[in-house]
Design a protein around this nucleic acid. Structure first.
Lengths: 176, 176
DNA sequence: CTTCCATTTGGCACTCGGTGCCATATACCC
DNA sequence: GGGTATATGGCACCGAGTGCCAAATGGAAG
């Protein structure tokens, strides 16, 4: 709904008034459905994270930790082929519009918490400890690098790029 | 100057009007010195990045890449012992106040660019390529994890935590 | 159908960050 | 001292986001 406005006018130039009018609701009502204009772009992300948590729980207990992370993150980002163009436009907004880039950091915190939680379980440490947090932060980082690369290179499959980036991470970016 | 206000009232509750009044300047003038209220917290960060670039240039050419990254990032974050309390309060704001947490993402972009640039040089790739970007993103991530850990554990030295986290990264977070 | 109650809606006014415009003050040069 | 460039800051404006409250909506019960 509001995405047409973002596409045509740009995110910053699209006012909440315009979005509300387009949706046929009052401006005040808009802010009851979305905490902020930024949140329009991020749909039901929290629910998706529940799904990621389940995927982590399903991994075999003897699998190397970074291998689990790689597999789950790759699968988490697999989208229906016909949804790819929409996903692309959404991620273009998130990764390229400064306001969204900044705001998204807050959402990433929830994502990291899921990864850190699983890593902590595997390592027998507290989710707030250095290693689980470092792993979660690093996994997020290389995923974002993969997303940016995917946006810049229309030919490649997102999951392939993610797989490559997360494999490099598990390898410590060493040469061999 | 403005940091006393942030400490006493909190960042969000401190208005630009209050900061300007405290500084004895007009509100309009404030916005000529700082692009935003957020930028007050980030001082001369760009200049510091130039220094980081120089440090990278100084590393021996045969040093493993992730070793250079570790060494430079650790040194980049070494602060004068008497400045530690101030640094701590500053980083508490940056890492814990949501508005700053979000905004800081934009500054981190410049930081990552420096790391990616060096990594690209070493790998013989484009700075925008996947691996340099992934390395920069990952290095940033584990550094932030280290900072958070440092803030939570008053006993430890920041550089030690950074060193540990970046070493783990270079090891791919593997067990041995 | 009507009455009553709960929930949803959205108008209004306000705060605050940020910006463009323009008059004035300040500083520097001749 | 006069003249010019630059720094200052007042003013009005925009847009995001919020608290308050009145009106609309929609069931359930009579």
């Amino acid at each position: 709904m509001a995405f047409e406005l973002f596409d045509h006018e740009g995110f910053d130039a699209t006012t909440v008034d315009a979005i509300a009018k387009r949706a046929g609701i009052g401006r005040r009502t808009f802010f009851r459905y979305f905490d902020s204009k930024n949140d329009v772009v991020w749909g039901a992300f929290t629910e998706q994270l529940d799904h990621m948590r389940e995927q982590f729980a399903r991994r075999p207990a003897d699998e190397p930790l970074m291998e689990s992370v790689r597999a789950v993150v790759v699968e988490f980002n697999r989208v229906d082929p016909e949804e790819v163009p929409r996903h692309r436009r959404r991620m273009e907004l998130i990764l390229r519009v400064p306001a969204l880039q900044a705001h998204s950091t807050l959402r990433y915190g929830d994502w990291r918490a899921v990864v850190a939680e699983h890593a902590a379980g595997r390592l027998g440490e507290d989710p707030g400890a250095l290693r689980p947090q470092a792993i979660a932060y690093a996994a997020l980082g290389v995923s974002l690098a993969a997303y940016e690369h995917w946006l810049a290179e229309p030919g490649r499959q997102l999951c392939d790029v993610l797989d490559e980036a997360l494999s490099e991470l598990a390898r410590g970016f060493s040469l061999n």
